[in-house]
């Protein structure tokens, strides 16, 4: 059985946050929503300080607390293991968010157009970007996916529903890697089938010790990390000012 997962090589990550940008453009996410987020951390005091980076997509847990608590089955695990949100069924109770230990959920607190970086209804946007800027309602993201035919790619970011990283379900379903993976300049993000020993993801962790975040919480994530774990005393170098 296919189990899609991601390997994140912290020894390679340079903290450039290209993955965050790629994610925002690909998924057209609203302001202050970071489906992919990269912690830039420091530990210790100068001159004995150490800097580290920790990319944090949704962990796509095998034992996902968010899936368990969803009262209406809007959050679910697909056949290949991707955890998605059916934004057409979500009632906006935010239970998934409070149950998730990783803080990967983003709720749409406002009308979509108020939280987009550009006013997509302005015709100039399309003219000046020569059609490169995705439309406000990206038809691909609004589509139905998988054999279950449900709306799980975020769509037009409807007000009052929960969203999070989908592993770019719309790309994966057509055989592509997630946007963050293909945009990483140093190949720190590797995507593939964790059950297939020949997949790039499995090969990446074949001869290196890999671990998962917060293993003690028994969420069994499908995101594996290579490299030194982040120290428990590490702190963010700068706080993101993203409270819209």
């Amino acid at each position: 059985m296919t189990r899609l997962g991601m390997v994140i090589d912290l020894e390679k990550c340079v903290g450039c946050r290209a993955c965050m940008v790629a994610c925002k453009v690909e998924n057209n996410t609203p302001e202050s929503a970071f489906w992919m987020y990269v912690f830039r951390l420091e530990d210790g005091e100068y001159p004995e300080s150490r800097v580290s980076f920790l990319p944090r997509p949704c962990q796509h847990c095998d034992n996902a607390p968010c899936v368990k608590v969803c009262p209406v089955g809007a959050r679910y695990t697909r056949d290949h293991g991707i955890v998605v949100t059916d934004w057409d069924r979500c009632i906006g109770c935010r239970y998934c968010e409070v149950a998730c230990p990783y803080g990967v959920n983003y709720f749409n607190y406002k009308k979509p157009k108020e939280l987009q970086y550009l006013n997509w209804e302005n015709p100039d946007v399309e003219v000046h970007s020569q059609g490169e800027v995705p439309p406000y309602k990206n038809p691909v993201l609004a589509g139905k996916f998988g054999p279950e035919q449900r709306k799980v790619a975020g769509g037009g970011h409807t007000k009052g529903v929960m969203e999070k990283c989908t592993f770019c379900v719309h790309r994966v379903d057509s055989g592509l890697d997630p946007a963050c993976v293909v945009n990483c300049p140093v190949g720190a993000l590797i995507f593939g089938d964790l059950e297939d020993p020949e997949s790039p993801a499995s090969r990446a962790i074949a001869d290196k010790p890999a671990y998962r975040l917060l293993e003690e919480r028994d969420t069994r994530p499908k995101v594996r990390y290579i490299g030194a774990p982040v120290s428990s005393t590490a702190r963010e170098i700068e706080r993101p000012k993203v409270r819209n």
Partner: peptide, 27 residues
């Protein structure tokens, strides 16, 4: 109080009676 907390209150009424899951403590 639960209804006013929801992001999609109208949809919620329909979806709860249609799909509510016993695995969720909200059930």
């Amino acid at each position: 109080s639960i209804i006013v907390d929801l992001g999609q209150p109208v949809r919620a009424v329909v979806n709860i009676i249609k799909y509510a899951r016993p695995m969720s403590p909200f059930f």
